[in-house]
Design a binder for these strands. Structure first.
Lengths: 277, 277
DNA sequence: AACTCTGTTTCTCTATTTGCAACAACAGCA
DNA sequence: TGCTGTTGTTGCAAATAGAGAAACAGAGTT
């Protein structure tokens, strides 16, 4: 089984930001003999998991990996329930909606419904971002206990990504406290300049935070007043989604969704509901 | 290396329609000993490629497979160029846009930009469909020579999926001829009842068909007249995309009349050589 | 045309996988 | 409750399949 383990070590390298890797790069990165790496890659290539550029001989992720990976999203009940909700958000707001989860120590964009406005595709599905630099990440981090948070930070230093990235622990703690109280998180250019993002928590069984529902907005179109209605939309959607996923209640958003059985049917009208201050 | 090969055989089973598989099912399907399967799966589980339900002990695709697979789409230049084009199509038509390629003998939806209208998510990204029952598939099949087509059909019988699926070879041939001449393909409920789809070819280097750009429309909203403007939109988008991908010309959908992307043309800047040095 | 850098293949030795069967966990059933 | 037929996970000696160095092949470069 050691063979498979090393093979998966190699495969893991491809999940990084590097688009393609050469045999030599992999060999040095894994401290494996070139011959072994070459043979392993040949198998992956034969199965279509990796593809090899015939001229540069470099390897990159293949189409079968894509096929396989997409069945994850297809089978994920959260993604399934979220699709129509995210569509409505993208349609009524004009901006792209995202659904993110915590995978290990990174924020993973599970799915996205693109709005009509063009923005940099960097945040697209499958992208992994630093939790402390994204709105979705802060929402997901907010569910951690103080000790869990400390442990997280010890594993993952708060590296600066843009000028406005939060890099100090007290500052992060304060922000998370705010997120917990308000039920949403807003970041403006913390992981990518010119990009604002809003996220709210999605709850699951036992009312644990299982995901973050969010929106990505070009910063120059970000408007304080309008953001309140966006947050309301997100809260509406997240409530519906949370209920479907087995939460007993959704505490955020000033809506009339008092009872768990009051299905979020008539949640269409766009009155400006007040966000908790 | 045999270990990795059998391990990938197992992994391949998960790319099917079955959501989860048990050790026994895998063992019988691959004619492998249960013990071997169990140990292999344990490694996959440790790496997060597969996940095991703690109660049912059944395995399903894990999140790391998703992460890995999504870098394929992220690195794919076709998908990259297609995103803004598909957004515009989805935005102006109100229906979802799709980009599909031929992967082995199946049509694979590489990406999708969801329109505001809700439709069954079955055609979502990563889904694999039978070429003879989809508009995108017919577009992609149209590039095959008669012998290649015959070979394809011998490998893949024209199975009936809905009442209107094409199942006879002469009929398929005639349709492909029509697709070649007209430069688009329309299917109505051939792979899923109640769903109409339109697709046009995307060309690449050497003017070979490399992908199909398409739209999915609820059948009851399909309108013959309106479909002409949809096809025009698709042709416009596919032309832009084809040029970007290195095609020398795009023979379909004349650019007569007012071009919807006149702005793009007008915005084209002469980035000539700067100061003569 | 020789050089160099990278990837692939060859060949022997031994560490690893193998497969049977016992073991453990669990559901169905009387 | 206890029995029984599943199903998934581990021990252990035999044997196969992988490890590693170095030779080989190919492409780009000077």
């Amino acid at each position: 089984m050691k063979t498979l383990a090393t093979a998966l070590d190699i495969l893991g390298l491809f999940a990084s930001d590097k688009e393609s890797l050469s045999v030599g790069e992999i060999a040095t990165a894994t401290r494996l003999a070139k011959s072994k790496v070459s043979r392993l890659l040949a198998i992956y290539r034969a199965y279509g998991i990796l593809e090899q550029d015939p001229v540069s001989r470099r390897y990159k992720v293949g189409i079968r990996a894509f096929e396989l990976g997409s069945v994850f999203a297809k089978n994920d009940p959260l993604a399934h329930d979220a699709l129509p909700i995210m569509r409505r958000i993208a349609d009524t707001s004009g901006h792209s909606a995202t659904l993110s989860i915590m995978a290990g120590d990174v924020v993973l964009h599970l799915m996205a419904v693109e709005g009509p406005l063009y923005i940099d595709g960097r945040w697209r599905v499958g992208n992994r971002l630093a939790p402390h630099a994204t709105s979705a990440g802060k929402v997901l981090l907010a569910s951690l206990s103080p000790t869990e948070l400390a442990s997280f930070v010890s594993r993952n230093p708060l590296t600066r990504i843009t000028a406005s990235t939060v890099t100090s622990m007290p500052r992060l703690r304060a922000q998370l406290e705010q997120v917990r109280a308000a039920g949403f998180s807003i970041t403006r250019g913390e992981s990518a300049p010119g990009l604002a993002a809003i996220a709210v928590p999605v709850l699951g069984r036992g009312d644990r935070i299982v995901a973050a529902l969010g929106m990505v907005v070009p910063d120059h179109l970000f408007d304080e007043d309008e953001s309140l209605s966006w947050i309301a939309k997100l809260h509406d959607g997240a409530r519906t989604l949370s209920m479907k996923r087995g939460a007993s209640a959704y505490p955020y958003g000033g809506m009339r969704g008092r009872s768990p059985h009051a299905s979020a049917r008539g949640a269409q009208q766009r009155g400006r509901s007040r966000a908790p201050a």
